[in-house]
Nucleic acid binder design. Structure first.
Lengths: 209, 209
DNA sequence: GTGGTCTTTTACCAAATGGTCAACTTAACG
DNA sequence: CGTTAAGTTGACCATTTGGTAAAAGACCAC
C-alpha cells in the first residue's frame, strides 16, 4: 500500500498534478471538437506534449479521461444554477442566471460542446451525474421559481420548461457557433445575444398584475 | 457510357431505389446516434440488412452516405422557415413557425440530432449548404420579421436572434432528450413544451402599443 | 434459354487505434 | 552519493475499420 493521508487515496505529487492537468486540458480540446469516438489518444497525447503510453500511465484508459473530464465539468456547469437565490428579487435573479449562463457559453465553449456531445449520444457516461446532481438541483430551482409565481412576482409558466429554454438559448451560441457564425457574418453575435435574451425573459416573466 | 435519360445521370432501377433507401434510413439511425466518426459501415450494413461491400456498391464511401443524408435533410429541415408568409398575420406566422419546428423535433429527432452533431463539430461537411441555402433563407426571413417590427405589428427585437432562439428552444427537446427525460420523469415533456413556447413567444412579441 | 448487365458476396488488405510491457531515465530523499 | 520509487518511452500487439478485387449469382430483354 502506497497510500498517504487518511482516506486511502495517494496524495498526488507535483509532477502528477501538472501532467494530469495537461492531459485533461488537451482532452477537453480534442473531445469537445471530435466527440468521444472521434477523439484519439494520439491526438490527446500530442496536444498534451506527452507520449501515448505516458498518458495511459496517468489514466487507465480513454474512457477514464472522458469521465474525469465530465465530472469536473459538472461542477462548473451547475454553479450558476446553484447561485439562484430564493430570497432575491425574482426577475432579477432569473435575468442574472441567464447572463451567467451566457457568459459560460462565451468563456467555456469547449465545455459546452463536450456536454452537448455527451447528451446528444444519450448521456451514456454522464447519466449517473444527471440523476444524482442535476436532477435534485433542478427540482430545487423549479420549486423556487414556482414559489415566485405563486407569490405573483413573475408571470406564470412551467418552471422546468423555463429552465430548458434558458439552457437552450444560451448554450446555442457555443454549441451551434459554426452556424451562428455563418448567419451573423460581421455582426457581433454575443453582444446582441445578451440584449436579446434580456428582452426575451423580461417580457416573458414581467407580471401583468 | 451507360447513361439513360437526358442529363447524364443513369436512371435508378427499382432495386437501386430500394437499396439506396434502406441504406440512407439505416445510416440516419446510426449517424444520428453515434456521430460521424462513431458510426461504422458495419453497423449501417447490419441495420440495412446488406453486406458492407454491397453498401459500398451503392455509395462511394462513408462520407458520401453522410453527405447525401445531410443534403436530403436540409430540404425537410428548412421547409418550415420557407413557409413563413410575409403577407400573413405576423404573430400568428411566428407562432405557427414555432409549432412546426417543435413538431419536427418530435417527428424527426434523428434528423435533429444528425444536424446538431454536424454543426457541433464545426459543420465540416455541411458548410456549403449553410452558406448557399440556409443563409439566404434566413436573410429573407429576417427582413420579413424586420418589416413586421417596423410596421409595429410585433414588438421590436433582433430578428436573427429571435430565429436562433426558436431553433434552440424547439430542437432542444430532440437534441437533449436524454437530459429532458431525466428531469421530466413522468411528466409529458412535449405537451408542456408546446404551451410554454406559445406563451414565451406571445409575451415576447405582442406589441405594447 | 442465352448473352449481357446489374447485384451480391467471399476473401482480403492497409491503416488506424486503444492498449501493454519491459527497459530506461529521472526525481526524491536519507 | 546511492538506492528506491516515480515517471517515461520505444517497440509491439490485437482489434477495428474503411475500402478493394474478383468471382459468383440474380435479373432481364431478346
Amino acid at each position: 500500500m502506497d497510500e498517504t493521508g487518511d482516506n486511502g487515496v495517494a496524495k498526488p505529487s507535483r509532477i502528477q498534478k501538472q501532467n494530469r492537468g495537461r492531459i485533461i486540458e488537451a482532452a477537453l480540446d480534442v473531445f469537445s471538437q471530435h466527440g468521444y469516438r472521434g477523439a484519439t489518444l494520439d491526438q490527446i497525447a500530442e496536444r498534451a506534449g506527452l507520449s501515448k503510453p505516458n498518458i495511459l500511465y496517468y489514466f487507465n484508459g480513454k474512457e477514464e479521461i472522458h469521465v474525469t473530464l465530465l465530472s469536473q465539468l459538472m461542477d462548473r456547469w451547475l454553479a450558476p444554477l446553484r447561485r439562484l437565490d430564493p430570497e432575491g428579487e425574482p426577475l432579477d435573479e432569473i435575468l442574472t442566471y441567464v447572463r451567467r449562463k451566457l457568459e459560460m457559453s462565451r468563456k467555456y465553449p469547449r465545455e459546452s460542446r463536450l456536454f452537448a456531445n455527451e447528451i446528444l449520444q444519450g448521456a451514456p457516461r454522464i447519466a449517473p451525474h444527471l440523476e444524482g446532481e442535476l436532477k435534485p438541483l433542478v427540482d430545487g430551482a423549479a420549486s423556487t421559481i414556482q414559489g415566485w409565481i405563486d407569490a405573483g412576482c413573475i408571470a406564470p409558466t412551467e418552471p422546468r420548461h423555463l429552465i430548458f429554454s434558458i439552457w437552450a438559448t444560451t448554450q446555442h451560441y457555443a454549441d451551434f457557433e459554426a452556424q451562428v457564425g455563418v448567419l451573423m457574418d460581421g455582426r457581433a453575435a454575443t453582444d446582441g445575444a445578451d440584449a436579446f435574451l434580456t428582452t426575451l425573459y423580461t417580457r416573458m416573466l414581467q407580471p401583468v398584475s
